[in-house]
C-alpha cells in the first residue's frame, strides 16, 4: 500500500533527476561542439552544405509565412486603429510587432519544425544505422565532422531567416495597409521610421533571433545524437526537438523581453 502511495513521488523524482542529467549532458555536449568547431570553420564546404540545408531549404516557408503574418497584422491593426482615427499608426504597429516579437519567435518556431527536426532525424538516423560509429572507427570524430557543422549552420541561418521574416511581414503590411486599404504611404513609412528604434527594437529582435538560433540548433543536434538507435527512437527524438524548441523559444522570449525592453 505505501508503495502505491509513494509511486507518483518516485516517478516525479525520477523525471527530475533524469531531466537534470540531460541538461548537464547537453551543456557538456555544447562544450564539446564548441571545442571542436575549429575544424568546421576551416572547412567551409561542410558549413556551406549545412547553411544550405537549414537556411535555403527553409526560405520558402519563412518568406510566405512572413508575408501572410504581416498582411493579417495589417488587417487586424487597421480594424482597431481606424476606430480611433489613427490609421497612420498602422506601419508602427506592424513593424514593432514583427521586429520585436513575431519575427524572431515565429521564425524560430518555423525553423525548429522545418530545419531542427530535419537535423535531429538526420543525426539520429546516422546513429541508428551505425554511421556515427563507423565514422568514429575511421578515426573521424563525429561531433567535429557531423554535429558541429550542423550546429553552426543553424546558428548562422536562424537570424537571417528571422530578418527575412520581419522584412517580408512589413512588406505584407504595406501591401494590405497601403495598396489595398489605402492608408497614406507617407505616414505609413514616416510614422514607422520615427517610432521604430534601430537599437532598442531592431537590434533587440536580432539578438533574440541569435539566441533562438543557438537554442534550437543545440536542441536539434543534441536530440539527434542522444536518440535511441532505433526507428522509433529517431521519431521520438524528432518530436522532442520540435516540442522542446517551442517551449524553450517561448521561455527564452519571456526572459529576453524582460531584459531587453
Amino acid at each position: 500500500m505505501p508503495e502505491a502511495l509513494l509511486r507518483p513521488f518516485i516517478r516525479l523524482g525520477h523525471s527530475v533527476v533524469s531531466g537534470i542529467w540531460r541538461l548537464g549532458f547537453a551543456s557538456r555536449f555544447l562544450g564539446a561542439i564548441l571545442m571542436m568547431s575549429g575544424a568546421t570553420f576551416r572547412r567551409p564546404a561542410l558549413l556551406m552544405r549545412e547553411i544550405y540545408f537549414s537556411g535555403v531549404l527553409s526560405l520558402i516557408i519563412i518568406l510566405v509565412s512572413g508575408l501572410f503574418v504581416g498582411m493579417v497584422l495589417a488587417l487586424h491593426g487597421y480594424d482597431t486603429l481606424s476606430r480611433y482615427g489613427s490609421e497612420e499608426w498602422l506601419g508602427v504597429l506592424v513593424a514593432l510587432s514583427l521586429t520585436r516579437e513575431l519575427g524572431p519567435v515565429l521564425a524560430g518556431l518555423l525553423f525548429a519544425s522545418r530545419a531542427g527536426s530535419a537535423i535531429t532525424a538526420e543525426i539520429g538516423l546516422m546513429k541508428a544505422t551505425e554511421q556515427l560509429s563507423a565514422m568514429a572507427m575511421m578515426a573521424v570524430n563525429p561531433v567535429a565532422r557531423v554535429v558541429a557543422p550542423r550546429f553552426w549552420g543553424g546558428v548562422i541561418a536562424m537570424p537571417l531567416l528571422a530578418a527575412m521574416f520581419s522584412a517580408m511581414g512589413v512588406l505584407g503590411g504595406y501591401l494590405v495597409g497601403v495598396v489595398q486599404i489605402g492608408v497614406d504611404p507617407g505616414s505609413f513609412w514616416s510614422q514607422m521610421q520615427s517610432q521604430v528604434d534601430v537599437e532598442r527594437d531592431i537590434l533587440a529582435g536580432v539578438i533574440k533571433s541569435v539566441v533562438f538560433g543557438f537554442a534550437v540548433a543545440l536542441i536539434a543536434v543534441f536530440e539527434g545524437y542522444d536518440s535511441e538507435a532505433t526507428a522509433e527512437g529517431v521519431s521520438r527524438a524528432t518530436t522532442r526537438t520540435v516540442v522542446t524548441s517551442a517551449l524553450v523559444i517561448l521561455g527564452l522570449d519571456f526572459i529576453l523581453t524582460a531584459f531587453l525592453f
Binding site: E122, L125, M126, T129, E130, Q131, S133, A134, M135
Partner: peptide
Amino acid sequence: FQFGALFTD
C-alpha cells in the same frame, strides 16, 4: 559494420 553503415548522403 553489420549492415555496412555507408554514409547515405
